[in-house]
Design a protein around this nucleic acid. Structure first.
Length: 173
DNA sequence: ACCCCGATCGTA
DNA sequence: ACGATCGGGGTT
């Protein structure tokens, strides 16, 4: 992947890459949401219609349409009736894929570790109002580059019943 | 209009 | 290990 200037917003081209590569590259980058800032420490990749765990595994529907759209957009959905999940669309338009942000090391406004995609959204106040936001343009929600390139380990994805053979969860060490 | 289940979390 | 919890996606 290309080199990017530290502290600068990651542009659309960053997300227009193979999803597992984007998921790995997002580790150590800074998630900015309003006044909240934190290093991304855990991600998962959901890759195309052939990935049984991907929401697009059963093709285009009203819900999955966003996954077929332009990379760099947020994809928020509600799960278990109470938790929101923050995803970022990846790869070229027409190919449904996204990265789930599962953990951050919060820097502002307070320093604390936030593990778990549901807790992350709760902590940062992320809800459906944050759905379909262009991270390449929004002043409220975007990713910033950083100099931290953490080592990471790859594991199966959490909380799914299919596609557990893929090591598509990435955790910064 | 209805049914079913989930990319979780907290407690045990 | 397991139950809470419930909105909404997918189908009828």
């Amino acid at each position: 992947m290309e080199k990017y200037v530290t502290g600068k917003r990651l542009e659309r081209r960053f997300f227009d890459n193979p999803t597992t590569e984007v998921a790995k590259a997002l580790l150590g980058k800074i998630l900015v949401c309003g006044s909240y800032k934190g290093y991304i420490t855990e991600t998962e990749a959901y890759v195309g219609e052939d990935d049984p765990a991907c929401h697009a595994a059963r093709g285009r529907t009203a819900r999955t349409e966003i996954m077929y759209g332009m990379p760099g957009y947020s994809y928020i959905y509600l799960i278990y009736g109470m938790y929101h999940m923050l995803n970022i669309i990846t790869e070229q338009e027409g190919f449904p894929a996204a990265v789930l942000i599962r953990g951050v090391k919060l820097l502002q406004p307070i320093a604390k570790t936030v593990d778990g995609p549901g807790k992350l959204c709760r902590e940062l106040g992320i809800g459906m109002a944050h759905h379909k936001i262009d991270l390449d343009a929004s002043p409220h929600l975007y990713i910033e580059n950083s100099v931290w390139h953490p080592e990471f380990q790859a594991t199966p994805r959490i909380g799914i019943k299919v596609g557990t053979d893929k090591l598509w969860r990435f955790v910064a060490q």
